[in-house]
């Protein structure tokens, strides 16, 4: 009886893991193909018998990429926009989440529920009004407008995730700090921030990733290479008549690499944040 049970559970385990491998394979296939393509010589990219791994490994595409003078500028622009977006989202988000969790005020519930309404609008519906507004305010082709548009998406999600973390802080801890002589801001800096540091950093990484990869607004609101970020920058690498897939996949690999690294470092906290956010009280 127990033998049958054991065998049955082993079989179940095997099926489970086969499923996982399959799903992981399907999800990571495009990324694998892109990375592999970036190391292929041009002749291997367009062929009737494509292979997953390159037959002749080459760094030619990367050399070509580095020879393009705008590319490092795009990366730097992405860094500036993503870093500022993340920093502001965290700074404002921490204060907002603190207030929403620890203050009692009328409308608190409504604000919490309204937080995610920005996600009801597909970004494309906002492109024209934002472009028009930015043009009126002379903000087209500036870091400011890119950071602002990023924040409009990153800030609500940052606050939402932070709410999930802050609700786990025992209310007495915050009270102990105030009885010990902290005002509200000191409470945030001396107690809430240090206690929640890993989680807050994870949310910083998450919002950084959002800003780094943002494409639609970056494409429509930048006009010159001076402020163009990496995603629309890749778009600019496409020629009008000929698309160099080796170059594009190399650029994609370079752009994604820092994100993968960041995500790998903070993966545990980001996943934790996502799951705790799903247990929100509204």
């Amino acid at each position: 009886m127990t033998m049958i049970k054991k065998r049955y559970s082993r079989l179940r385990g095997a099926i489970f893991y086969c499923g996982l491998v399959l799903i992981t394979g399907i999800l990571s296939l495009p990324a694998l193909v892109a990375i592999s393509t970036s190391f292929k010589p041009y002749s291997e990219i367009f062929t009737t018998n494509p292979t997953i791994l390159p037959q002749h490994f080459t760094l030619a595409s990367y050399q070509k990429l580095l020879a393009i003078p705008e590319f490092p500028v795009y990366l730097l622009n992405s860094l500036i926009v993503a870093a500022f977006s993340a920093a502001i989202a965290i700074a404002v988000g921490v204060l907002a989440a603190y207030a929403l969790v620890f203050f009692r005020f009328p409308g608190r519930r409504v604000i919490r529920q309204a937080l995610l309404t920005t996600y009801m609008f597909p970004a494309i519906t906002l492109v024209f009004p934002v472009f028009f507004g930015a043009s009126r305010l002379n903000l087209l082709d500036t870091y400011t407008i890119l950071i602002l548009t990023n924040l409009s998406f990153a800030l609500p999600i940052a606050i939402w995730l932070l709410l999930g973390f802050f609700e786990k802080i025992p209310v007495e801890l915050e009270r102990a700090a105030r009885v010990d002589g902290c005002n509200r801001l000191q409470t945030v800096f001396h107690v809430i921030l240090p206690v929640m540091l890993p989680s807050i950093m994870a949310i910083g990484v998450f919002t950084f990733i959002l800003g780094w990869g943002e494409y639609l607004f970056a494409l429509t609101l930048t006009l010159t290479d001076a402020h163009r970020t990496a995603s629309p920058g890749m778009h600019a690498l496409m020629g009008n008549y000929r698309i160099d897939y080796g170059l594009l996949t190399a650029a994609g690999t370079v752009i994604v690499f820092p994100l993968v690294l960041l995500f790998a470092l903070f993966q545990k906290h980001i996943v934790e944040g996502m799951t705790s956010a799903s247990h929100h009280r509204l």
């Binding site: 025992p170 007495e172 801890l173 009270r175 102990a176 700090a177 009885v179 107690v191 240090p194 206690v195």
Partner: peptide, 13 residues
């Protein structure tokens, strides 16, 4: 005033 809480509320960090 000083306060002692049921769950102690010690600063974990």
């Amino acid at each position: 005033v000083a306060m002692v809480f049921q769950n102690y509320a010690l600063y974990p960090h």
